[in-house]
Amino acid sequence: MNIICGPNGIGKTTILECIAQSFSGQFVPILKRRADSSEGEVLAWIDDISSTESAGFKVTEFLPARGNAYTQPIEHRAKNLLSLKVARTFNYQPLDAVAKDVRKDTAKISTENISGLNISEVKNWFVNRHLYSAHSDSLTGAQLHNISLAKEFFGILNSNYKFSRVDASSNEIMVSTPAGEILYEYLSSGFKSCLSILFGIVKELEFRFKELEVKADEFSGVILIDEIELHLHPDWQAKIAKILTIAFPKSQFIVSTHSPHVIQAAQLDEVIALQTDNGHVFRRTLPETQYGFQGWTIEEVLKDVMGMEDTRTLIYHKTLKEFEKAVDDDNYSDASAAYEKLDSLLHPENHLRKLLAFQLGALKG
């Protein structure tokens, strides 16, 4: 698990796009050189068990209407990268008939590496596998393994949710929840975002490696996920990276995030924190601790990992300055007014309130 964090505009998504490009072998308008440069260059090396391949390329174009030179995609590279973009939730999708698997040739795979996995294919794939699993010898051993794995994903975030059935009359995927049985499209956006990642990976591996019969939890390629925390409650943001590494233990994940909860739960050396200084982007040096940041507060993660200079609001700082100035000026009236405002702004259990009250009392005396 590799978690890239940093402020907006620093290039987190661009890094993911460059990795996708390195595997895919064709250029798209999203990759442009910097405005102050004549060209850009990406240097990449792809390692597998037996060899290391160079996959670097140059980017010369700046205008959106013009693309860079096209290069023929390389099949074994393209197949071994999966990319998930920010569009990961989905609406209700009627399934009037169960279709056969989508054919994925190298060109299509390469295109989807750049545009992102097609999550609209998931429902048909799931229903197809579930229905055919009841018929002996209809599915391969890997397909049976993968659909069993996929059914377990419904409860991976919350054990109170379970796959229930596929309705034979409507091809609807039904989920058992604490509130009763519902269509899987009726799950929350956070649930659907997670399932889009999990199901999308399994579905795509079956379509790409049909002849090899790859079991999803044995896939050892690269999986890119932009803004991994999207639609998730902070509690699930803290779980999502661990869930993915449990579900796909041999894969290499490279993800971006703006969430301190994702970083707080990360393991040692999983976080790549980016910072900029006068236009130069570099990797921040982070403390080497045995447990990563799992004992840090969210505020400490925001400041010392993500580079957030201040975690309080402008109105708080303005009012605090007014209070401090009034104290320096021995102006009890202004200090009292500022204190009343701070008293309303602060958390009910904040110990700073007592210190401010002590200062105000001393000024009155």
Results as ranks from 00 to 15, higher is better:
310 D>L: 05
294 Q>A: 11
293 F>H: 09
286 L>P: 04
308 M>H: 04
323 F>Q: 00
276 T>M: 03
275 Q>M: 03
290 Q>E: 12
275 Q>W: 01
325 K>S: 03
275 Q>T: 01
274 L>D: 01
264 Q>T: 10
299 E>F: 08
314 L>N: 01
305 V>N: 11
276 T>D: 03
309 E>V: 03
256 S>A: 14
265 A>H: 05
287 P>G: 03
305 V>C: 14
279 G>P: 10
303 K>Q: 15
283 R>C: 05
314 L>F: 03
315 I>M: 07
318 K>E: 15
309 E>W: 01
254 I>A: 12
284 R>D: 03
323 F>A: 00
250 K>F: 15
276 T>A: 00
318 K>T: 15
267 Q>M: 10
269 D>Y: 08
265 A>G: 01
282 F>D: 06
269 D>C: 07
247 A>E: 13
256 S>R: 14
311 T>V: 02
256 S>Y: 13
293 F>K: 08
298 I>H: 12
280 H>N: 02
277 D>M: 06
302 L>N: 10
251 S>C: 14
313 T>E: 07
316 Y>K: 02
318 K>N: 15
268 L>Q: 12
268 L>W: 05
308 M>E: 04
248 F>C: 14
276 T>Q: 02
315 I>E: 04
258 H>E: 10
323 F>I: 00
294 Q>F: 02
304 D>P: 14
292 G>Y: 04
315 I>A: 13
247 A>F: 13
314 L>R: 08
293 F>N: 05
323 F>V: 00
283 R>W: 06
255 V>M: 15
311 T>F: 07
277 D>A: 09
316 Y>G: 10
324 E>N: 00
322 E>N: 10
314 L>K: 05
263 I>M: 12
273 A>I: 11
268 L>G: 07
307 G>A: 00
296 W>S: 08
284 R>A: 08
306 M>Q: 04
302 L>P: 10
264 Q>P: 05
305 V>Y: 08
287 P>Q: 03
271 V>Q: 11
280 H>L: 12
263 I>G: 05
285 T>A: 06
249 P>Y: 05
